[in-house]
Design a protein around this nucleic acid. Structure first.
Lengths: 191, 191
DNA sequence: TGTACATCAGTGAACGCGCGTTCACTGATGTAC
DNA sequence: TGTACATCAGTGAACGCGCGTTCACTGATGTAC
């Protein structure tokens, strides 16, 4: 009895590799992400992934792209169409939470420029940019969209990294929530 | 004729290692920073650094600490006592420039929590926090210092990383300057 | 001032490791007749 | 419907690499008498 979806001969190693990579990141951090470990985890010879990915970087880029899509989903799940500063704070918190909950994936997504594999990664980044732009347009009509949108992305991105890197204490989720809430309000209230 | 300062027998390997590490980061990025490479660059046996650093992490922490001090100097050089939004934008730009000019060092400074070696790194981080707090107190009397200070750090830190990671185009210095300027003003004007 | 000794920074060889990547191969799948 | 063949996903052994760390050592320095 074959699996419902098995596009190729037997396993779909292409996506199995990405899943394996996500698991490895979750369990062992950035350092745990090697082509050999991925192959091992997928139950396959070390050379097998080369059928689907030109090299390590290609796999990493595929993983990053999946990460972007998941982040975008996470944000829109927090609020599809935020229209108040409080809504915005909720989205900001979602961004920071995503980073804290999946630190290694987050680091993979935001490390080194978008290699050559621009297509995949840049496109994924654009989804987030577009979402941000639409928020700014809705919440702050008349504002300089590009400037404010960049500024807001920077705020949440900075908060995410500062928590990730231990510059801001992140052990208690409520402390994180309070801090993000306070920061967003400090910047945007009365605007 | 002995060197002016040579605390130990001949070379001061302790600081030579840190200098070597800084050079390696500058030239080859984060990946180039290994204990063996540092020893090589310092013209010394691979095991020699172990006289001064317990392990690789200890060296990396020392490097990060130096980076923090340099960043603090860089910021105060941009403006010792910023008192207007424009002054603040200049400091923000200095922060971002530091990251762009020394990306590998910046990444070393802000990666992974402050290990055990808290002393050195946390102390260094605190210098930056204190500087920020003093700015906020001077520029925005009556504001929630902690919240606004965190928010501002997040903004500049986010801008730094987004440029570093290629999410914001950073090839033309003037584009970076304009963007940072616009972002800071978008957030703080009329405050 | 001169000798004997302790200290300890730096040596060099060796360890075991996991990595990325290559290569000739095998064996199941799908296609053409 | 059945056989012959091409395709190509996955195998497994091997390559060369640089890494972090250890260990017994050597040799220059500084100290005690």
């Amino acid at each position: 009895m074959p699996q419902a979806t098995s596009p190729y001969h037997h396993g779909d190693l292409r996506v199995a590799c990405v899943h394996a990579a996500l698991e490895l990141l979750e369990e062992g951090g950035t350092a745990a992400l090697s082509l050999r470990a991925v192959a091992r985890r997928a139950g396959v010879a070390p050379s097998a992934p080369y059928r689907h990915y030109a090299d390590r970087d290609a796999l990493v880029s595929a993983v990053a792209a999946v990460g972007y899509r998941q982040l975008a989903d996470y944000l829109t799940a927090a609020h599809a169409e935020p229209s108040s500063v409080d809504d915005l704070a909720a989205v900001a918190l979602a961004y920071v939470r995503f980073a804290i909950e999946r630190p290694a994936l987050f680091r993979v997504m935001f490390s080194e420029p978008c290699d050559r594999d621009s297509g995949n990664r840049v496109a994924a980044t654009n989804i987030i940019s577009a979402y941000l732009d639409s928020i700014v347009r809705r919440c702050f009509p008349g504002a300089d969209v590009a400037a404010l949108s960049t500024a807001l992305w920077a705020v949440v991105h900075g908060l995410a990294f500062l928590h990730l890197d231990g510059k801001l204490e992140a052990s208690r989720p409520s402390a994180v929530a309070d801090r993000v809430h306070a920061a967003v309000h400090a910047l945007l209230d009365g605007r």
